[in-house]
Design a protein around this nucleic acid. Structure first.
Length: 185
DNA sequence: ACGTCATTTCCTGTTT
DNA sequence: GAAACAGGAAATGACG
């Protein structure tokens, strides 16, 4: 597989490592701007805090291989996730689909959501207010808060879209949620 | 114009 | 004490 840089730039003013490209990836279909993350954290934040680099699942086209490829991702690395159909899915109308697509898109995710158990569909909200802002941005609602977003998530327990997990900020996709399982992508 | 759906907003109380 | 969780109730806005 491709070798990825294990060191990331400590500061936005520092030079970025060259964009690593997979053989199968020749161009990006992704939006050129970084508007997805802008309202959530500055570039300074992105490059000065080690915590913003969660374990990363490398992607090629529609398949994953998250086994031994456990390296830290940089924003540039995330560009590798080109070609995945769910990218534009961030336009999805429903909250659970938005959350799902964010979970499946490392670039837009920015460490906001993280899989707790990929196979069982258990995930954790790492940055609650950032998630709320992003959802609010999607709905053009600057008054969105995690408090209100979580209320909407709790309604999903009733419909089987989500299942309850007794841990703070942890949720699980239910039997009526689809499109999140890696072997079905 | 109306009803439904999917939240959004607000709130009071409990828990971590 | 702050941040989450729990839900009830009512308001909203998009849509058919």
């Amino acid at each position: 597989g491709p070798s990825l840089p294990h060191n990331h730039s400590p500061h936005p003013s520092a030079s970025y490592p060259p964009l690593v490209m997979l053989d199968s990836v020749t161009h990006s279909t992704f939006l050129p701007n970084a508007s997805f993350c802008d309202p959530l954290m500055s570039w300074t934040d992105l490059f000065s805090n080690e915590e913003y680099y969660p374990p990363f699942e490398h992607q090629t086209g529609y398949s994953f291989f998250n086994d031994a490829e456990e390296s830290k991702a940089t924003i540039k690395d995330c560009k590798l996730s080109q070609g995945c159909h769910w990218h534009m899915g961030l336009q999805s109308s429903h909250l659970w689909e938005f959350v799902r697509d964010l979970l499946l898109s490392p670039e837009e995710n920015c460490g906001i959501l993280e899989w707790e158990d990929r196979e069982q569909g258990i995930f954790r909200v790492v940055k609650s207010e950032a998630l709320a802002k992003m959802w609010g941005q999607r709905k053009k609602n600057d008054r969105m808060t995690y408090e209100k977003l979580s209320r909407a998530l709790r309604y999903y327990y009733k419909t089987g879209i989500l299942e309850r997990v007794d841990r703070r900020l942890v949720y699980k996709f239910g039997k009526n949620a689809h499109g999140w399982q890696e072997d079905k992508l």
